[in-house]
């Protein structure tokens, strides 16, 4: 019998520690499939963050170096500059990339560092127990916005991808989601395209991924995938935000 589905080579044989229904595990798999398909496993260096994905190096079968919270873009810059022939990606949460690491992210993008960022937007700080993130929806209750996020008091959901779209050094930015088979397929295409941009030396590429966090959203897995469609993607519309490649996709 022909085997038509198996674990990607770049994904270690390990049991994910993520909660049931969490988007991180899907995204890990997608990244690994792309790394396999592009044949870059032996020259890829990943930079995971503090956050729920801090143990990403237990799953990705590529060289990895943990960064300090928010500093992934700077660490990736150092790696890529020291070793230009490597393929470098950061894996960053929304707290990591759009709060504490905003500066590093914008300036790395502005220098057009030839790296790829996988940006997981789950609208909360997952690892530390569901506190408000800069991406938290208005009205959403978290442990640090217990009355529901109010723009005038707690600020507004920040659109890092749109901001980065304005930055000259970026070549490709797309927002996708991993809440349905169709969206997962689109997410994979986007990730592949982002890595391809790096292989082509085009500059900073980023894929923002709306990713369910049932645990901190206090929803079932099913409710949370629906919520991504019904609420989250209204605030964070899916689609290409910037594309200077001139190519539609790389498949």
């Amino acid at each position: 019998m022909e085997k038509i589905f198996s674990r990607p080579k770049s994904l270690k044989k390990a049991v994910f520690h993520y909660c049931p229904g969490c988007g991180h595990s899907i995204i890990h798999r997608l990244c690994c499939e792309v790394i396999d398909e592009l044949g870059i496993q032996d020259r890829t260096i990943g930079v995971p963050p503090p956050g729920c994905s801090v143990f990403a190096y237990y799953y990705f079968d590529v060289d990895m170096v943990e960064s300090a919270h928010g500093r992934g873009a700077a660490v990736a810059t150092g790696i890529k500059r020291a070793l230009p022939e490597s393929i470098v990606f950061t894996y960053q949460g929304d707290g990591d990339l759009s709060a504490i690491g905003t500066t590093e992210t914008i300036h790395t993008a502005n220098r057009g560092e030839n790296i790829t960022a996988i940006f997981i937007n789950n609208a909360v700080y997952g690892m530390t127990g569901g506190q408000m993130a800069p991406t938290t929806m208005l009205g959403m209750k978290t442990t640090t916005s217990p009355f529901g996020r109010e723009g005038k008091y707690e600020g507004y959901p920040i659109k890092m991808s749109e901001i980065l779209g304005q930055v000259q050094g970026t070549c490709y930015i797309e927002r996708v989601a991993v809440n349905s088979p169709a969206n997962i397929r689109k997410a994979k295409k986007a990730i592949k395209k982002a890595f391809q941009c790096q292989l082509d030396g085009l500059g900073y590429s980023l894929v923002e991924i709306l990713s369910p966090c049932p645990t901190n959203w206090k929803m079932s897995a099913i409710q949370s995938v629906k919520w991504v469609d019904e609420v989250m993607s209204k605030e964070f519309p899916l689609g290409v935000i910037k594309d200077t490649t001139g190519k539609k996709d790389v498949n």
Binding site: I45, V47, V65, S67, A68, R71, A74, V75, A76, T77, G78, I79, K80, R81, A82, L83, S86, T103, E104, H107
Partner: peptide
């Protein structure tokens, strides 16, 4: 300076 030292960290790791 935060970015600079983290770049050193990234370069040194290679």
């Amino acid at each position: 300076e935060i970015a600079a030292i983290n770049m050193v960290y990234g370069a040194s790791v290679t």
